[in-house]
Nucleic acid binder design. Structure first.
Lengths: 337, 337
DNA sequence: CTTTCTTATGCAAACGTTTGCATAATCTAT
DNA sequence: ATAGATTATGCAAACGTTTGCATAAGAAAG
């Protein structure tokens, strides 16, 4: 039977002063006498006054909330990102409104509408695999709401973005494989319409070139799920018996490789090395444990949030588009020599 | 240079009618003539009128937002839960405000304050491992905001909750081990102050009793992380050479068991079976793949959200506390016979 | 003792809705 | 023609803030 929430009006009435005086007292306005200030603050404290965020938002035309659109939260990388976002947002007293597109274009549109109608003051998004049109994102921008894309950025639209250095990450990983004696390294990539995919492939190719190893298209293929791996990897092993390493676009495929190799009697890493990408939770639990490129989800999230919040704070500062690159880091474990 | 957002007032002015008529037209109020209605709706449609959610919230004293407190989102189970919550919330046009306690008591308090100040109309929460006081949750209730706990429920407080049937899950898993020929099954559990832990242990013990296998405390221990497993499991293997199965409280420990067993030369499942709990992503990638009790994160999330939303919708209906149990399901893979 | 300048306070509008009540216009029945 | 009922519309308050402006009281200056 608690009173719902005490308001400025209640305080004013109790103290027999005006609402504006109460309001000003609470925000330490210089034109209020210290006596009244103390009185008000004490009363507010005692009765646990909390400003009504809706009224405040209405008055101020903003609600200190940032919207997040994530393809699928049940992935190590994306949940790390969300974690990073949350940390940064909390630090700056922003709230985080969470939406999930489920890798679906239609649902992504709904997400943008939800965020728009929730009147968030900024958006962080990673686009779904199925998205090829970007009008819904454009609409956010048209409403003067800043948006920062992370990881799966949106090439069609001119906004801030945060990506990982896929190219360098792949390059370093492949160079590590080469330096540890691998000469014939298969590349298991993903759909080349994603920028991510191409960058990793180019890192792979350039590392080979640097070390004068021929780039052989016959051992490069699209293979980004467990199912595909179960089908493709055995074929590669049979047809190209000289393969001595797999470099994969994610840890799921790498882990599947490891399992296939184990059960086919290959010694990892002595006969064949395996290197993944993401450095997910998984990589600590394969046997042998998996060498992988750390995709820095948490940092991606916090960096993106940081960027957005900065933009929100000094919104006069429209100094063009910012594009941040978070450095990957190769985490070497037992699956490479 | 878009106009920020069109309001009822704008429509009223443009159409030279009053704001109230516009408002009523848009919600198909019977006392408005069809002519005006059409006019208004058409105009609203054309100019993409979106009601201002803050004003609406202020007026209606609610904002259709539910707050979620999750210990650590970078866990398969919790991210599944969030996914389930999001699905259900979206269906009912609720927004999801996300907070993370990081398994920390202090941060959990901050989360509750954030949600309170955000004026959410309901809360879904799983308590942190470190929490032993519940005043902050009580405060939410004192503010007349319904709260539903999931998985890690809060025994000190009388509210709705959704849990998984840990007891039966464990019971069935252990019975499966027994039925496939295991006789000496080690139990690797977690901190008994969590209700979860006790329920699983009791399921384990009762399954043994049912099959007239003695409960032996010497092969039951607290071991709920990879680090602990790396230390404890080898010891168990040495001192109790007749162990023929491990039943673990989570998949992380189970996966670690598998790795230890593999590298010690044990044949899984022929010599030793392993059964985990959660049925996380991990369980598909161990070698052999892991038999595990599916903890139904997604269903937990959607059930909890459902419960909360029902409570919000007919808030007159205060028919006591509801406690829902989501059924686990044993997913049998290669690590058991 | 006026006048001017501080200092402290209050009034009222605004943010964008919803909704009870009043009222204007039209229609129906006498 | 007139009263009464019906239909369509508008007014204004309310939700809880912030803030420009007005104003009251007291102090300083003439």
């Amino acid at each position: 039977m608690e009173k719902k929430h005490i308001t400025l009006k209640d305080i004013a009435k109790a103290l027999k002063i005006s609402i504006s005086t109460v309001s000003r007292s609470l925000k330490d306005h210089p034109e209020i006498s210290t006596g009244t200030k103390e009185l008000v603050c004490e009363y507010a404290e005692k009765h646990k006054y909390k400003p009504n965020i809706l009224a405040l938002g209405l008055r101020m035309q903003k609600n200190n909330t940032i919207g997040v659109i994530i393809p699928e939260i049940v992935h190590y990388f994306f949940s790390s990102v969300l974690s990073g976002i949350e940390k940064e947002a909390e630090k700056e007293e922003y709230k985080v409104l969470f939406c999930q597109s489920n890798e679906d274009y239609e649902r992504e549109i709904i997400c943008t509408e939800t965020l728009l109608s929730a009147q968030v003051c900024g958006v962080l998004a990673s686009v779904s695999k199925k998205t090829t049109q970007f009008d819904h994102f454009q609409e956010i921008i048209d409403n003067d709401i800043p948006i920062v894309f992370f990881d799966r950025i949106c090439t069609g639209i001119n906004t801030d973005k945060v990506v990982v250095d896929d190219y360098t990450g792949a390059f370093n990983a492949v160079e590590h494989l080469i330096n540890t004696g691998c000469k014939r390294i298969a590349f298991l990539g993903c759909n080349p319409i994603l920028a991510i995919s191409n960058n990793r492939r180019m890192g792979y190719e350039d590392a080979l070139r640097k070390h004068r190893i021929p780039v052989d298209k016959s051992i490069m293929t699209i293979c980004d799920t467990k199912e595909l791996a179960l089908e493709i990897v055995p074929k590669i092993l049979q047809s190209h018996d000289k393969i001595d390493a797999f470099f994969t676009v994610n840890d799921e495929v790498a882990a599947t490789c490891i399992n296939i190799l184990n059960s086919s009697g290959y010694k990892i890493p002595d006969e064949i090395s395996v290197c993944g990408f993401t450095n997910s939770y998984l990589s600590q639990f394969t046997s042998p444990t998996l060498t992988s490129v750390d995709q820095r989800g948490f940092e991606i999230g916090s960096t993106a949030a940081r960027l957005l919040i900065n933009r929100l704070k000094n919104n006069e500062n429209k100094d063009g588009i910012l594009s941040k690159v978070v450095k990957t880091k190769l985490v070497i474990r037992e699956s490479t020599r």
